[in-house]
């Protein structure tokens, strides 16, 4: 097990380097001059050229790339072009909010999604099942920004139960978490339901019924354990991407997370911040995948090789 984990962590290094090369190349090739975007529309071209020189943007691609990787390997992710704040600091400052939002959203979606998914599978075609399928369909179709705005208008403006933005106090967290959880809950419901349905039709479940086992034990004990692997996959992937920042939710609710920081950095062609964020997300995502794989092994003895 330990060897497995170590091997996966070592594999991170070529993955990160590959990602850095790809993103760096994309940023280099896409149109848009960071110096121009910093100084704005009104700056005369001569000043833009002076800034380009200062920023080392006129150096050939290989020189710029080597410089970046060299610094990165020494732990220096550079300073943001726009704010001149060290990239590592900005990421460290913005990440906690995103992590909190992701955790809260994930927790709520699992809390809602799994029980409903299980019940739907067990009571297939019942009213509960139909309702939850409709809910799942709606939640997947409704755009997050619309849902967020509607929640704000209904619960913040009209009912005045919750504040409309921010993510510090518990009450501020409610609406954004619900917005985020809605879509994920839908996915989890459907995944849980379909996975459970497959398992519930297996022979060993029939045997358990036949042996007279209590329903709860069959469902939660046998069926759930066997059907949970695809669900964990889905949860893992969603969680990983949420950690990259749910940009739309963050923007609507004014949450200073990593998602908005990254999108702004991309718009401003703030290369150091974009690259730093991408490296960071790649690492986090890989670790989440690793965690998911470890959980597989823990749940399914067949995978413990």
């Amino acid at each position: 097990m330990l060897k497995f984990v170590l091997k996966r962590i070592l594999m991170l290094i070529p993955v990160i380097l590959g990602i850095v090369l790809i993103v760096f190349t994309i940023m280099y090739l896409t149109p848009g001059d960071p110096a121009r975007l910093i100084l704005g529309e009104k700056a005369p071209q001569e000043q833009v050229d002076v800034l380009r020189d200062q920023m080392g943007l006129n150096d050939p691609f290989v020189v710029q790339f080597a410089r970046y990787v060299g610094n990165m390997l020494r732990g220096d992710f550079g300073r943001s072009y726009a704010t001149n704040i060290p990239v590592a600091e900005t990421i460290a400052e913005r990440f906690p909010k995103t992590a909190e939002l992701a955790l809260a959203g994930m927790f709520l979606s699992v809390l809602i999604g799994m029980p409903i998914g299980i019940l739907s599978a067990v009571k297939r075609y019942s009213i509960l099942d139909n309702i939850s399928m409709i809910f799942a369909m709606l939640a997947t179709a409704i755009p997050a920004f619309w849902l967020g705005m509607m929640l704000i208008i209904a619960f913040s403006l009209n009912l005045k139960w919750f504040p409309s933005s921010g993510f510090d106090t518990f009450r501020q967290m409610v609406l954004p978490t619900i917005t985020l959880a809605a879509v994920n809950a839908a996915v989890i419901i459907r995944m849980t339901r379909s996975s459970m349905l497959e398992v519930v039709r297996q022979d060993y479940i029939r045997t358990a019924w036949a042996k007279g086992a209590d329903q709860k034990r069959v469902v939660l004990g046998h069926a759930l354990k066997n059907s949970i692997i695809p669900v964990i996959t889905v949860i893992g992937i969603n969680f990983g991407s949420l950690l990259g920042g749910a940009v739309v939710t963050e923007t609507v609710f004014g949450i200073p997370g990593l998602g908005t920081a990254m999108v702004n950095a991309i718009r401003m062609k703030d290369n150091p911040l974009v690259l730093g964020s991408v490296v960071y997300i790649a690492i986090v995502f890989s670790l989440v995948n690793l965690a998911v794989d470890i959980i597989y092994a823990l749940i399914d003895p067949r995978l413990r090789e």
């Binding site: 705005m149 704000i152 208008i153 913040s156 403006l157 504040p163 409309s164 933005s165 921010g166 923007t251 609507v252 609710f253 004014g254 200073p256 908005t260």
Partner: peptide, 12 residues
């Protein structure tokens, strides 16, 4: 306070 969305800012 940073509120990038104008609708949210108005509600606030």
């Amino acid at each position: 306070r940073v509120l990038p969305d104008t609708s949210t800012a108005l509600v606030a």
